[in-house]
Structure formats: structure tokens, C-alpha cells
Design a protein around this nucleic acid. Sequence first.
DNA 1: GTAACTGCAAACCTTTTGCAGCTTG
DNA 2: CAAGCTGCAAAAGGTTTGCAGTTAC
Lengths: 145, 145
Amino acid sequence: MEQIDNRELLNDRGIKYTNQRNITFNILRQMDLPITAEQAFMKVKEVDSSISLSTIYRILDLFVSKGLVLKSNISDDNKAIFELNRMEHKHHLICVKCKKMTVVDNCPFEAFEKTLEQKTKFQITAHKLEMYGFCPLCQEKGGDI
Amino acid sequence: MEQIDNRELLNDRGIKYTNQRNITFNILRQMDLPITAEQAFMKVKEVDSSISLSTIYRILDLFVSKGLVLKSNISDDNKAIFELNRMEHKHHLICVKCKKMTVVDNCPFEAFEKTLEQKTKFQITAHKLEMYGFCPLCQEKGGDI
DNA sequence: GTAACTGCAAACCTTTTGCAGCTTG
DNA sequence: CAAGCTGCAAAAGGTTTGCAGTTAC
């Protein structure tokens, strides 16, 4: 994998540069879907085999605390997933059978949120929308869930 | 707490009646927001102090597998939450500061989902929408998150 | 050189499981 | 009585932490 140097970008966010942080950031940047800590660990390991899982957790948490990365989790699965915060607004469509995720970039929400803010007096800062169903392949295969 | 007998309801779903299942079901029915297994455990314990946490997990899993209960989790929190499946369509608004949840019963989605099904060829069976922000109280209090 | 980062192993927390004993129908 | 539910304790994931050694500036 091409190792871009993100020193400046990390520094700007108040993150001290280290090689492993740089690698982790590059991994996240080239992913177009969220990954688990374990998956990040495997990927980073391909570039620096000395990395430990706890360091991955520490790096991911740091990135999250600096707003660089988004942490969430999919329904009924006790693992966190992480993705680069691209400041784009997007959602996911997740197959309940094979768990494949597909990106949905349309979001039909702004209007609804405004109404809701007025109604509830909440100050809404984010929302998360996931749709679940059967992906085309799993529909073909048929059978039970 | 009033202990309604849900024997018939449980039997109809193919769930063998036991006292603890009945209590657990009553707890869930009187909750209007999702609770964790631990919270359910505490609540059931008030009625039957002999209940064990593993039984709570087994009961909740059973209810989920029979479609009686919905299991999910809120962002960035590694615990499952459970709520009665009331067959109503609703969403939650969650305060990022105090984690208070508020129910939102409006859902602006059906139309969008149809379009998306055509575009992606997914067969959408469910969706989950959560909005995050500051509840009125936490806005008043101000300060950092 | 110093403050901060990292690897390792152990701890932690939520959830699951094996087994012996107890309930329900 | 048989099937299957339950308590307990132990195991199993995922995640966090303490500490000694290493790295970045």
C-alpha cells in the first residue's frame, strides 16, 4: 500500500506523528466502509508487523477524540466499527444475511430534522440511519436467514 | 409492579411459560424505552430475587428470536439494548451528553426507501434511525461535552 | 532529554455456555 | 415423567489498562 505522509494533517489536529498512526490513517483513508479494530489491526500489520492490537485501539480512540474518525456499531453486533470522518453525509444499507454493507449517499433528512428540533427542543448534532435487508446476491440464493 | 399473566401470549409465540419469562415480559411492556440486559436484570430481581443474569440473557434472546423483542445498540456503547416489539414504527433522539433517549414517532421514510430499493436492488426489511444532539436540559447547563 | 507512545500481559465488562438440579405441563 | 428451564461458575469475546522499554522532536 502506498504510504502517504500525513504528518501535517495529524499535527494540525493536535496528534503527535508516529509511524503507526500514519499507517493507520492511510488504511482508514483507503477504506470506503467502516472496519472493526481487528480488521484495522490486520491491515496495519501487513505494513508494520510489530503493531499490537491495544495500540490500534489507542490510535482509533485518539482519532475519534480528535474528530478524525467516526465510531459506531451495527445492530446486534458487539463490536465497534470505525471509519474516516470524511465530512460527507452518508448512510449504510446492510444485508441481514451476509452483513455486506453498501453506501447510500443520498440523505432525505434536513427538513425533517428542523421540524423535529422545533418540536423537541433538542439541538440535533448528528444522525445515524441504517437500512437492513437482503442484498441482491442473498435474494438470489434464497433460503433461510 | 402489577403482574399480568401473559401465558397465552407467550404460548401463542411458541414460548413455554415460566414465571421469570412472564415477569421479564411485564417489565419490557411497561418500559417505553429500550433497556440493557443489566437493567432488565435489576428490574426482574425486584419481583423475583432468585433470577440470574444469564437467565435474563437467555430470556431476552428467546424473545428476540420469536420476534417479541427488538435488540439493538446505541452508538459507541458496547452494550445491547432491548425493547418490546410494539410493531410501531419509531425512532430515538439521544442526548450525546446525558444519554437520555426521547421517542420520535414520526418517520419520513417510506418514499425514500422505495426509491432506494429500485436503485440498489436490495430488499429492504427494516431501518434504524437515531438522532443525536443535546437535550434541552444539557443545553441549559452548557459547558463541555 | 523528556514527554509521549508502544508491546505485552493482565484486567475488565458484557455476553455465552456446560452442567447439575429444578419446573412446567 | 420428560423436556426443557434455571443458577452457578467458568469461559469467551471485545476492549482497556499498568508498566517497563522505546520513539519523536
